Amino acid sequence: MSNKPSILIVGAGAIGSFYGAILKKAGCSVSTVLRSEYDAVKANGIRITSPLGDLSYRPDNVYRDGDTPTETPDYLILCVKVLPGVDRAALVKPWMGANTRLVLIENGLDIERELAEAYPANPLISCLAFIAASRTAPGEVEHKAYGKLVMGRFPEGIDDDCRTLADLFIEGGISIDLTEQVVGERWRKCVWNTPFNPLSVLANGADTLTILDTEGGEALIRELMKETMATAAADGHPLDEQLIEQNIDGTRKMPAYKNSMALDYLNGRDIELDAVLGNVVAIARHHGVPVPHLTTVLTTLRMREKLKAKA
């Protein structure tokens, strides 16, 4: 019998499936809660192609959303999209035990608070994923590059729960950075996500290199990054100005990449507009920081959402 902690993945899409595979490789019991892909995963497991090798695995248990659990996990990893109308606190409630550590591997800013308030007695670990991965078919994932996680206790600090989970991910073959200030790290990631993701939707699902190589594209990305960093500084999380160059240089070194918001848009799914952009603009307004470019992108996407709702 393994003495390693039990893991439950709620939201086993591309991201949840990949990190479940890493923990499975480390010797953990890994189970999943699924909605639309239950039948495919129950029958065939999760198939993952990756530069790290074949990461395919069969979850120890495959649950439907709404099933009654027979036991609660040591770590519940939540990987669902942060969308309006999705009650994440209710989604995890059946699976939360007195000693369950709640782990978020999700995009966006100011996304932890509602869960911290719903489960004040449970440790909450917030993680940022630096990964290029996409779902190609039910139960099938293509991992293209990266995979590092930055993690810390919310709202701050590093504890033994973080260290235990970090060691398991490292044993499974990925890099981990532990941080005392996970909110500041979320701001750091926003410097890339907040410009590129929404702009890719406005550009009809454009990939990263199309955005950068279009006349005026890189200049626009720089302006959006500057406004994001000004908001972060006003919120108490100043960032190094070199981060803009690092992000653009790193993006140019990657293959042309359609980010998760672009893929959601192209496949007719809702996008994480508030988590990635709306919350940044709201915080800028709170601090009186002018963000005209971010506001224009947000307003235009709100128009698109209104048209979609009327269709």
Rank of each mutant, 00 (worst) to 15 (best):
M254E: 15
R186Q: 11
I48Y: 05
N99R: 10
N61I: 12
A309I: 07
R163G: 02
E106I: 00
R35C: 06
N259S: 09
D207S: 14
T299E: 12
S134H: 15
L104T: 06
I176D: 01
N204F: 13
V276I: 15
N193L: 08
V30C: 04
C162G: 01
K144N: 06
Y63M: 14
R188M: 14
G157K: 08
Y38V: 09
T49I: 03
L294D: 00
Q242F: 14
G16L: 06
E185S: 13
T300W: 08
R64M: 13
G216M: 10
A206H: 04
L209V: 10
V201C: 13
D161C: 11
K24N: 15
S200G: 04
K148V: 03
T100W: 00
G217E: 02
D65W: 14
A26N: 09
E37M: 10
S175P: 09
T72N: 08
H237W: 09
E227P: 00
K4A: 05
M1G: 13
R285T: 05
A219F: 08
V289I: 13
E112Q: 15
D213M: 11
A133C: 14
P84E: 03
K308N: 14
T194I: 05
A116R: 13
G13A: 04
I7S: 03
D249E: 15
N267W: 06
E37P: 03
F196Y: 13
S6I: 08
I15S: 01
A133H: 04
I271H: 02
A132C: 11
I46L: 13
E245L: 12
T194K: 04
Y119E: 04
W95K: 07
A256Q: 11
V30T: 02
T68L: 05
